[in-house]
């Protein structure tokens, strides 16, 4: 259990060392009771301090004429290759906005004008009857007529089911012919109907 706490504490300590922020109270509390974590934090924070300190100590001044040398080279570049003009800041935003408007104007009419899908074949008959009667059929509908309609509506559904059954049969036959050994098929176990 303590090892897990130490693992989490070390993760937190590494985070704090990266960000150079003080340790939170729970970690400080853990450090007071855990010598290895205390040693880990001590070593790591000492190391980061030393690295920063030595970097500052070793930072040597560049030679006195380096700046002049650089500027001479820059001036030469400036005269031979004139600096390209900075593009106006608003250019990108305006271009993007115009592109978005054009895209919206192109796509929106297609979306709005999109027609509803054509009615399913099984309901075509019913739709035609309603259109021919000018809507009177629905007003005059009785229990008997509704039953007649339902029979008529079921007709194409039965036909569709028959088609599906035929498709399924042919698929099973094709699979059987491909994967069932011929010896079994010749014994009369063929699935052909």
């Amino acid at each position: 259990m303590k090892m897990i706490t130490c693992w989490f504490t070390k993760r937190e300590m590494a985070r704090r060392l990266d960000d150079e922020t003080p340790l939170p109270p729970p970690v400080q509390h853990h450090l007071r009771h855990c010598a290895p974590c205390q040693q880990f934090y001590g070593t790591q924070s000492r190391l980061t301090r030393q690295l920063s300190h030595e970097a500052r100590r070793q930072a040597t001044q560049p030679p006195p004429f380096l700046g002049t040398r650089i500027m001479a080279a820059v001036r030469q570049t400036a005269t031979t290759e004139p600096q390209p003009a900075a593009p106006p800041r608003w250019l990108w935003r305006t271009t993007l906005a115009v592109a978005a408007i054009v895209a919206a104007l192109t796509v929106l009419p297609h979306l709005v004008m999109q027609r509803p899908p054509p009615p399913h074949p099984s309901t075509q008959w019913f739709t035609k009857v309603i259109q021919l009667s000018g809507g009177e059929v629905l007003e005059q509908a009785t229990g008997q007529t509704i039953e007649e309609w339902s029979v008529s509506l079921d007709q194409p559904l039965e036909t569709e089911i028959a088609y599906v059954m035929n498709d399924a049969r042919s698929a099973i036959d094709s699979l059987a012919n491909r994967f069932i050994p011929e010896t079994l098929l010749t014994k009369g176990t063929t699935l052909n109907h």
């Binding site: 650089i70 080279a73 820059v74 570049t77 400036a78 290759e81 600096q83 390209p84 900075a86």
Partner: peptide, 9 residues
């Protein structure tokens, strides 16, 4: 610094 100047835009 020369590269920086050339690409400052």
């Amino acid at each position: 610094f020369i590269k920086a100047y050339k690409n400052i835009h």
